[in-house]
Design a protein around this nucleic acid. Structure first.
Lengths: 132, 132
DNA sequence: TTGATTGCAAAGACTTTGCATATAC
DNA sequence: GTATATGCAAAGTCTTTGCAATCAA
């Protein structure tokens, strides 16, 4: 459940936080702060946009969710916790999650065998662009 | 030279455009619009920030330059035309270009052999995070 | 109780736009 | 000459912040 992640991060559980995380976890798109706000205020009309922003930022800091950017530079949020990549659909301009362990393995194998700019790589994420 | 790219894109060559492109091509960082503006106005004090934004956007539309975003969601511009990836340095928060044909080959080979979400992939870019 | 979180209102950062003037072709 | 680009000022969008009130632990 969502609230366990909140507790594990050492954050206090509030109605707002649980509702926001719940929405993100059950969303198959990558909502903007505004989209989260619109959804949350249907049920909890007193929640403000600044709380949504603050909450999302807290979740990002604590790695409960990810923040990604559209090609237009707009922030979108994503509660998927399995490692994944993103595919920008050139037709719709939207994101699609890409889960592909085979791909991860291939890249990880390569990284093990080759240094990248003398850095220790912690993680990588691939952005694909394409269309159907 | 930079102005050939401008002409080839069907754009008019202006002092402003040439100066902006020249700066980007000779920059080893990924400047923000503000950084471009600061540099350009040293030499051409009458150039405005809105011209810088308009010009950068025109260049992006015409694929003369790339627009990328920092992990904070700030736009940065990049005139490198060889295919490359980005490495976020966790210590400095800045970008480093990653040129690695071996890596490209490995990923391209994988893409040839495996469909990604049933899409036709045009391109991909990898964002690495790490530190020295 | 006590520190963390929320709501509110205001400000801030970044970017875009409309329009008159100037410029490239 | 004509369409395009620039400069200017103003507005727009997205996000952050300070502070008092509220709430979770």
């Amino acid at each position: 459940m969502g609230f366990e992640k909140i507790i594990n991060a050492g954050l206090k559980t509030t109605v707002q936080r649980i509702a926001i995380l719940d929405f993100l976890e059950n969303s198959d798109v990558h909502p903007s702060a505004e989209m989260v706000f619109n959804y949350i205020t249907e049920k909890y009309p007193t929640v403000t946009l600044s709380t949504v922003y603050n909450t999302l930022e807290k979740f990002v800091e604590n790695k409960i969710i990810n923040k990604v950017f559209t090609i237009q530079g707009k922030a979108r949020y994503d509660a998927k916790n399995e490692k994944h990549h993103h595919l920008f659909d050139k037709n719709t301009g939207e994101f699609i999650d890409v889960f592909d362990d085979g791909l991860n393995d291939v890249v990880e194998k390569y990284l093990k065998e080759h240094k990248i700019s003398n850095f220790k790589i912690d993680d990588f994420q691939i952005n694909f662009t394409g269309k159907i």
